[in-house]
Write a protein that binds this DNA or RNA. Sequence first.
DNA 1: ACAGCGCAATAACTTGGGTTATGATCATTA
DNA 2: TAATGATCATAACCCAAGTTATTGCGCTGT
Lengths: 264, 264
Amino acid sequence: MEPIIPVIELNRERPDTDRIPWHRAPAPDGSMFGCALARKLDAFGPLTEQDRSALTGLTVYTRPVGRHVVLVEQDCAADHALIVFAGFAGRHKRRASGRRQILAYLIPGDLCDRGALHGYPLDHAIETLSHCRIARVPRAAYLDLIENHPGIAFALQRARLAEEATGREWIANIGIRSGVERAAHLLCELLERLGSIGQASDGRFDLPLTQADLAEALGLSSVHMNRVLQTLRRDGMIALQGRHLRILAPRRLRQLAEFEASYL
Amino acid sequence: MEPIIPVIELNRERPDTDRIPWHRAPAPDGSMFGCALARKLDAFGPLTEQDRSALTGLTVYTRPVGRHVVLVEQDCAADHALIVFAGFAGRHKRRASGRRQILAYLIPGDLCDRGALHGYPLDHAIETLSHCRIARVPRAAYLDLIENHPGIAFALQRARLAEEATGREWIANIGIRSGVERAAHLLCELLERLGSIGQASDGRFDLPLTQADLAEALGLSSVHMNRVLQTLRRDGMIALQGRHLRILAPRRLRQLAEFEASYL
DNA sequence: ACAGCGCAATAACTTGGGTTATGATCATTA
DNA sequence: TAATGATCATAACCCAAGTTATTGCGCTGT
């Protein structure tokens, strides 16, 4: 049994972060983010120069957030949405026992709570997995954007379909793959996604997640996650030290995972 | 290892069904379907009388389809979408080994390939799991419908969010629940979904699936699926004979699965 | 009436992965 | 500098679930 993290404990951090004001641009690492969201959407449907500047304007308000901070609680609705600006966050569900399942990793450029923009409460919680910078998007600004920028609206549509496809891929991953295969598939996916926002190159990227964070996404125990990573290392597929991952044999890794990038 | 079902074998049935013409309404069991789709959408957002008749008009063309027939192949795009009219179908992905994972059950009123309506190819295959009646919806008719019937457009939005939430629930189900718990959760979900289209009452519904079909949705082997069902029977939670399921202790079943219906 | 088939049931055996526990390393903070 | 807490690594043990195989029932087609 993994240690039980009481929800109360986690929520206690919220007031702290709520006291921190939203920064106006330019944020310290703003250039990188403009890049992340714009690059992501651009890959789905080419954006115009106006589209790009509109995206930059969309994310004026950002805020630094520590690790393991609840961004959105389950069943909570809001008049704004959040976009990951920098760092890793994740959707998750928790059982009464305290055990949790990560449903999706949110990386820079990812929209946290689409439902909020349509006025629906969320069926899961969203929490930062590393130190993050989060952008706040008022519903009005979002609606205005998709109204006046068909190119962005189109790209957002595709992004949503890709998100849905990723969810299906995760079901298959947990359902019919072994531990090593699951891990291999996840790493292939992350390489692809991080690559598309310019945060991976040459098979290398920063992975600010603990083995427990990976285990919770793959439906494994953290002990077995460790075993699985040892196997991938031993077989010369990856090199993972500290928070930096190098994929040494991308072809073999994809083969092992039967990874098909087309869903992204 | 489950027996490998070559894809070729399955596809051989397609030409057969393609020779069968699309029937014009009224289809033999049409009243039931109008009921299924309309009831489903009505639960998400109240429909007007005009909305209802528009829905009936939408599904003029239907076709009976046998069991284990591929409705949509992976990577295939089309100018029309399919809606399940009667029976059970399912989305699935298959590995090279032949093992497959069912990603979602499609019951009457469910849209098979939303992507097709937006012009995107599918990342998985769709196959009937029982004898079905399928409705064909041309893209133009669909677009026209959501254009002129805001109530339906709204309900379809919500239906899509519910589908996404169901996908997330399945990830959690496979990831952090034991075999019995997974089965319990799935049965609770089916009771809820079938109930909302008037095909379950008093904890009873027809379940035209084999134990292997259930196993493939839950990431279990068919042998273990059998064990799990025996356990649920022995504990007096369910009675499953032939293709008819009775949930004898709904409260205990929900408790066991930690089932929360709010995501639907 | 019989053969053939799909499906459920169940036994026997194996294994992947969970659980618990213990050190080692490293960063933080007192 | 020492104490504390995370994280990674590994060993030992165990069980839930996979695998393989056999039986029996109830269809369906001939």
